[in-house]
């Protein structure tokens, strides 16, 4: 579904991503792991259009998406979360999720300007849908709390809910369980599994190795911007290059 071919990103002389190629299939949870500074987040930024690759091609269902502005890429069905949470801090959790529905909502402004009841209905419906999405991440009771007042783990879950509200075909998660307690992380892992089963392609950056091994169908390992290994969790875990990259060679 999502395919990267020889994708590169150079910042001056630094090749943050260097010829990375891999595919994420529909219904798959694909792990992207690697040491700090390996280029994982940079790669996510390239896919979501926040920065442009300096080489290679990114395509969704065979159509090139690299070079498109971020909002057009989102419109093609790619949603994401952020490593350093980027919620709309001043808005309530529910309103954050309502923004996530932006691409799904059909509510022309003129209807609202004419005070048509259909506009009011549509807004109530949006809010109700947002509350339901929040319930999915276990935050039904916190829907009307301002995002800044939520705990770190809760904020991460609101971000996931906001991304899910866009009903994406590809979901990019940047360390979704960072800073979460073990039960909280397990709940997120179950949710990610469920989302994939519904037909979404999930690309997941995660540092929690146990969780990655249990959750992912396939894993791509990045080091210094290059793909050094790929395969099923058990295959990747056996790769000497991976062990060396993580534990440091002599």
């Amino acid at each position: 579904m999502l395919s990267l071919g020889q994708v590169s990103k150079a910042f001056g002389g630094v090749r943050a991503v260097d010829g990375a190629s891999f595919e994420v299939e529909k219904g798959e949870v694909h792990g992207l792991i690697g040491p700090n500074g390996a280029g994982k987040t940079t790669l996510l930024n390239l896919i979501s259009g926040l920065s442009q690759p300096t080489g290679g091609a990114i395509s969704l269902d065979g159509a090139r998406i690299d070079g498109l502005p971020a909002h057009r890429i989102a419109a093609k069905g790619i949603a994401r979360t952020y490593q350093n949470i980027r919620l709309f801090a001043g808005l309530s959790a529910a309103d954050n999720v309502v923004v996530g529905q932006y691409l799904q909502r059909r509510a022309p402004l003129w209807r609202r300007l004419l005070l048509l009841p259909s506009a009011r209905r549509e807004e109530r419906e949006a809010l109700r849908a947002a509350e339901e999405t929040l319930a999915r991440v276990g935050l039904r009771g916190r829907a009307h709390e301002r995002a800044v007042n939520l705990s770190y783990g809760e904020q991460r879950r609101v971000e996931i809910a906001r991304a899910l509200a866009a009903q994406p075909r590809v979901l990019l998660l940047d360390e979704p369980t960072a800073g979460m307690s073990a039960p909280e992380a397990d709940a997120v892992a179950r949710l990610v599994r469920e989302v994939a089963r519904e037909g979404c392609a999930v690309l997941l950056i995660e540092h929690n190795v146990k969780l990655v091994m249990a959750l992912c169908d396939r894993i791509t390992v990045l080091n210094f911007g290059q793909v050094i290994a790929r395969g099923s969790p058990s295959e990747v875990a056996k790769e000497p290059v991976v062990i060396e990259a993580y534990l440091g060679g002599a």
Binding site: A74, A89, G90, Y102, A166
Partner: peptide
């Protein structure tokens, strides 16, 4: 409102 709060996040919401 989303643009006021976080423009980058708003862009990736479409």
């Amino acid at each position: 409102e989303a643009i006021r709060e976080d423009e980058t996040a708003a862009r990736t919401m479409g």
